[in-house]
């Protein structure tokens, strides 16, 4: 009973903590504290937090293996959904604050700007993952569910390309997030190889 209470508290804590970036940027927009170009500041900030949540949700597996942190794994769905949530806000704020819903500009942005196209593709691919993130869908799709959700690796690579194509004066963000992503994906490949080797090993021992 007590542990159930604790879990509920934890859940609410995580749920509310993930809303803090949104609260922070909204508050600063409200008090006009976002400088001369609040539009750009908001769009960049929301995009960055979409990336943070995606990266955190991808970090959980390696962290579990390396440090034994499995507690957070329970929140992977929530974190992934927050990545989708912030990515949607990122796109909406771009359309609203940067292009002011001028359809000609918007269409042009999506068709002629490769970095926007790539970012939009990543967001588009996240939507089916968000929809099928429930337990019901997990049950219904069975093995397919895992296959579908491995799209997240492709999505993270698209996000990375989106980020690299935005570089102007500093490689810092691209190097930082790129190195983390390389580590997270590389670690999965390593796990997979070891798994295969082990299976082969047991198969050989069995014969």
């Amino acid at each position: 009973m007590q542990s159930k209470m604790l879990r509920l508290l934890q859940w609410w804590f995580m749920f509310l903590a993930a809303l803090l970036p949104l609260g922070w940027i909204s508050y600063n927009a409200w008090i006009f504290n976002l400088g001369a170009d609040p539009a750009k500041t908001i769009v960049d900030f929301l995009g960055q937090w979409a990336l943070h949540f995606l990266w955190i949700s991808l970090a959980l597996t390696p962290l579990k293996h390396l440090l034994g942190w499995s507690g957070l794994l329970r929140y992977r769905r929530m974190l992934g959904l927050y990545a989708l949530f912030y990515a949607c806000l990122h796109l909406l704020s771009f359309a609203t604050f940067i292009v002011g819903w001028r359809w000609d500009l918007l269409l042009q942005a999506f068709t002629e700007r490769p970095y926007i196209f790539v970012g939009a593709t990543a967001l588009l691919l996240m939507i089916p993952l968000g929809i099928t993130s429930t337990k019901g869908w997990q049950r219904r799709l069975k093995k397919r569910w895992g296959q579908l959700h491995s799209l997240v690796y492709l999505i993270s690579l698209l996000v990375m390309v989106h980020l690299i194509w935005l570089i102007r004066a500093s490689y810092f963000d691209a190097v930082l997030y790129g190195a983390i992503l390389a580590w997270m994906l590389g670690y999965r490949l390593y796990l997979k190889r070891r798994q295969l080797q082990r299976r082969r090993g047991t198969a050989a021992a069995g014969s």
Binding site: A29, A36, P38, G100, R113, Y115
Partner: peptide, 23 residues
């Protein structure tokens, strides 16, 4: 003549506000 990564046909006159992107 566009920048390869973005359009140069319009600009946002700063300061812009959230109510008007001032394109």
């Amino acid at each position: 003549v566009n920048h390869p990564r973005w359009s140069q046909a319009t600009e946002r006159r700063l300061p812009s506000s959230l109510f008007n992107p001032n394109v």
